[in-house]
Design a protein around this nucleic acid. Sequence first.
DNA 1: CGGACTAAAATGGCAGGTGT
DNA 2: ACACCTGCCATTTTAGTCCG
Length: 423
Amino acid sequence: MANLSSIATAVASKPLPAFSPQNDLPVLANGRVHHALMSPSVQVRILALIDETGSTTLGEVVAHFPDHSDPVGAVLVMAGLCLLRLDHAEKLLDANTRVRRYPVNGFPPETMMLSPPEKKQEIEPVKEPAHPEPLKLPASLRRLEARSFRPTVVIGSGDDRRDFAKMQELRRPGIYGLMNSSSLYIGFGIDAGNRVASGQQPIQDIETIFVITDAENILTADDAEVAERILWSRAAAARERLMVNGLPSGVAVDLQRFSDIDAFVAEACLTLRHEDVLFTRGSPRTVLAGPRSEPGRTAPPRLFDDLPDGEVMELVFNEGRVALAARSSDDDWVLLKGSEVRPEVVQSANSSASFLRAAWLHSGILVPSPDGISYLLTKDMRFRSAGATAHFVTGSKGRGRGGWQPIDPDGGFDPETAALIAS
DNA sequence: CGGACTAAAATGGCAGGTGT
DNA sequence: ACACCTGCCATTTTAGTCCG
């Protein structure tokens, strides 16, 4: 359930980080940087220096602060809070190192920077290896990269949607949800924060908005579109609210990337559950796992040797691969389990062909065949047209209604047919 | 801020080209 | 002759922009 009071409680219960001169961690609060090297006037003078021409250099900063013990340190403190950015910070710092606001016309993300330890991830300019030890590995060992994405979930009320554009960590590819008491809109944006703040409002009386971005900002726009389709499916399957928009299209994606993005979305869903926002029904495990497939996609269960409803059609393609589908009507096709699916997808194919391969391999609906040259469908899956079914199976366009030939399910001109249907 | 309008993109279908 | 791929098209859906 959407419960704003619970959100407020969660925020209020978080202890404010204590900032003291002894504490080396800089803190941004009420628009002001608190740190031993900073004072309000130093902060304002540095920013003014940058704003004169859009950038300045460390040399100019030093020249303008003859009375300051460590003006460069002050700049680094602000850079550490993502208020400033140093060009080519990976090189040696010198008087020519250029300093700008972060990222371009960035505005301090205001109240959102209250947890400096989290922000450490984004500190590019300050090169201080936090964990020097773990970097060294014995030659005999190899470190495996864990999955790549880590969600940041930010939530607010519909009335405050403009504020989402003020957070730099939301000004990047991400996904979002707009909720009122009965409906939910799932969307994605290349600039998620801005999209929420100034985009069209597709539903009435929005009470709650949440935005999910990647903490390391390595989620690309394409990844975000994949995440959008995954989140939509999860929310639709949860049946807690009416989905305003239809199934997003997603983009082409491979299995490993899909799995990484699914894990990213799963973690965000679990977070929303903990805050009592969405995904509150069922067990946490169910929330993490998500649905096996998109709602309405799985056909009704069929017993081992039951024949499917409708006319059974056969598609032979690609050097003898065979797929079977039951056609109930022109817009209701069920691809039967056991059907072969070509692993490859042609370049001109629509995104769904590759997306569904990845999604169904991920959930076990599609498995490699024993001989390894095809995928096999393990469940009856529903499609909206003959062309879409063929498109998925062959991984290519061009096989419309005509590719499917009726067969006689009771008997067979092909002895393998019955086994294929029943398998 | 939000509704109305416009632009852009995705979908499924199909004709036609290409290679075997 | 056949299977398969590409690219175009009409239609539908979604995103973006303007303006009161």
